[in-house]
């Protein structure tokens, strides 16, 4: 059991607005170490958390540009490496390479988007003991908050008032997939 888990508390909510209320109040209390669990992405939660924009788009852009460059480079370089004329066309036939470049733009863009997702969302995250409850994948919302020293009671108060169906102090860390 980690020290962090020691200090935190996990609240389970049945309703969205209750969760949002709890987050906003926790933020007002300057509890910054909050993890929210949700079965469905809801903008209400994002707004409440005031999260910065995801950097995945940078990955997409860089991947796509790399792909385009790779496509043109591949066509051009291989044509020059062993020049073979076909159909009286020039050695470097850019219109044809546009298609290769386009496909590689998409391919590299997509793959680097996935890489961006995995890196930013810290996935895969398997076999580690974490705070989790299977109910979060079914229909429940959850907030795991780590209060700063001395805030424990207030946090508990906020969660309870907001409408938490259950509040677990020092929840047990589990391996997802085993419960």
């Amino acid at each position: 059991m980690s020290a962090r888990a020691d200090a935190g508390m996990l609240a389970v909510f049945g309703e969205l607005d209750a969760t949002v209320t709890a987050i906003e109040r926790l933020r007002a209390l300057k509890v910054s170490d909050i993890v929210v669990f949700t079965p469905v992405p809801r903008h209400e939660l994002d707004h409440a958390l005031h999260e910065p924009e995801s950097p995945v788009r940078i990955f997409t852009l860089v991947g796509g540009l790399t792909g385009a460059a790779t496509g043109f480079a591949l066509g051009t370089w291989t044509s020059l490496d062993w020049p073979l004329v076909t159909g009286g066309k020039p050695i470097i036939t850019l219109p044809a390479f546009v298609i290769i470049a386009f496909e590689l733009t998409i391919l590299f863009g997509a793959l680097s988007t996935v890489a961006g997702l995995l890196i930013n969302a810290r996935l895969p995250h398997m076999g580690l003991e974490v705070i989790y409850d299977p109910a979060f994948s079914a229909g429940k919302f959850g907030i795991y908050a780590v209060p700063q020293p001395g805030q424990g009671a207030s946090v508990r108060q906020i969660l309870g008032d907001a409408g938490a169906e259950e509040i677990r102090e020092r929840p047990e860390e589990v391996r997802v997939g085993t419960v």
Binding site: L84, V85, T86, G87, G88, K89, A96
Partner: peptide, 15 residues
């Protein structure tokens, strides 16, 4: 301008 050449994916037909 052989039409057969540019369509070959592996340069088996070329000039």
């Amino acid at each position: 301008n052989a039409p057969c050449e540019p369509v070959c994916p592996v340069y088996a037909a070329y000039h």
